[in-house]
Design a protein around this nucleic acid. Sequence first.
DNA 1: AAGGGGTGCAACCGCTGCGGG
DNA 2: TCCCGCAGCGGTTGCACCCCT
Length: 500
Amino acid sequence: MSYTMVTDESDDAMYSSIYNESPSADNGCTSRGKGSVLKKGPWTSTEDGILINYVRKHGEGNWNTVQKHTSLARCGKSCRLRWANHLRPNLKKGAFSKEEEQLIVEMHAKMGNKWAQMAEYLPGRTDNEIKNYWNTRIKRRQRAGLPLYPPGIHVEDMHWSQEYPSTSNNITGVDRRRHQDYMQLGNSKANVLFDDLNFANVLFEDLNFATSLLPRASDITDMFACNMLGTGESSSRYESYMPPILPSPKQLGGSGSRFNIRQEFQSPEQFQNAAPQKNPRSCNISDHPMYGNQHQSDVMIPDSHTFTDGMLPTSKPLFGAVKLELPSFQYSETSSAFDQWKTTPSPPQSDLLDSIDTYIQSPPPLEIDEPGCFSSCDTGLLDMLLHEAKIKASAKHSLLLSSSEKSFSSTACMTDATQNVPRGGETHITSAESPCFVFEAFAGNVVKTEELDQVWEPMRVDVIRPDVLLASSWQDQQGRFGIVRESNSMSDALALLLGG
DNA sequence: AAGGGGTGCAACCGCTGCGGG
DNA sequence: TCCCGCAGCGGTTGCACCCCT
């Protein structure tokens, strides 16, 4: 549905309305324009014209001065929003394309509700659009009883509750920001699993952060999985997948949200028989069955049905209550959805996004022997995917903006893309309290340039730092870890995502 | 044709970070 | 170092339009 809130009216009528019809004395814009209260509500075409002219003359920014220099009785925030969301050039209107939707889904799995960051990867789209799209998607799929994420996209974020143990029922604003930041970081470590259904074969695993606190992420992962597979008591598939994310103060204080999707585990018993027995503090990834070359196919999740086999490790009980909260993308769902997920045959390919979404939200954790080790390995492939998408988007955007030839050299691409990529020699990072993972990683041709192919050398990386790990384990040229089975698949996926 | 609920977009609101004085 | 104002972000709400009965 597309319609405009802008109304046509004469200047006189507009100015009359501007200065006389504000229903609220204070709408959050505390300043007053020309002695009058500021207008709120839908923008008129005349107001748009005034704002456009102002920006032409003065440029963006200094939004609070708009009302000083123009007859516009809008607060700076309102002007900025109007400009950013509707008036600025190069805005793309209309429905999201399939590629855009796909990218949003994947980015949300990766970043959470970081709408502004997502918007950076979608030129012409605003954070507001993306946010609205996502909220609409939540509602739509919730109504339909469908899982939110496509199969193979597995989102977990277990680390917050580990770094901020269950004490934090009233976190401060600073902590809230830390939470957000940590979520961002944590999401970069999120387990995101793509299956073969036209997606890249990607596996993201979280790093073993703060493993000494509370149940480890992998433990909870296993608990979720066991519950989901019927070994636990949980009847809700999504309960099983709830990562223990600390509630924000707003959420704790009740909500006026239309989507109050917070849930909690009712008791630790829900996790009975659901934790790994081993708690390795280090691992050699090359020895790991998941990443060793002997079980390559096991790494990936061809489709969700794999997990109906119940091939999951036994787990140990979770001690103590763990307050868990659904992130925004998760919601309660009846077991019927899970049943559907378990029994529905493969989707048709014609409508990839919707059909895939129909089947599962997130595949459970993989069959592993050493969950702690497994969860310590993060390919960071989506990071790079996003990075490359951003690069390409920027390039396209630059081309749009300027007719002059704006250089987008492979060198620049390489420089940018390899900022996080350690190369050459051994990187060894240690931490007094963190386990040190030692594995061999072969940085690959993530960015498909010859320069990169030439520059990136096989290397050995001792990693405990997520960025290093992310960068180092990007793509396995030799398929050594089975993280990405085929580089061509990755390229295809990128092409698919980027529409070219 | 009418009306009531659903849907989706636009805008508002509150909070935080940052930079300048 | 503190304070203040601005910019930006994410959550929330209002309302016009759609669609079904």
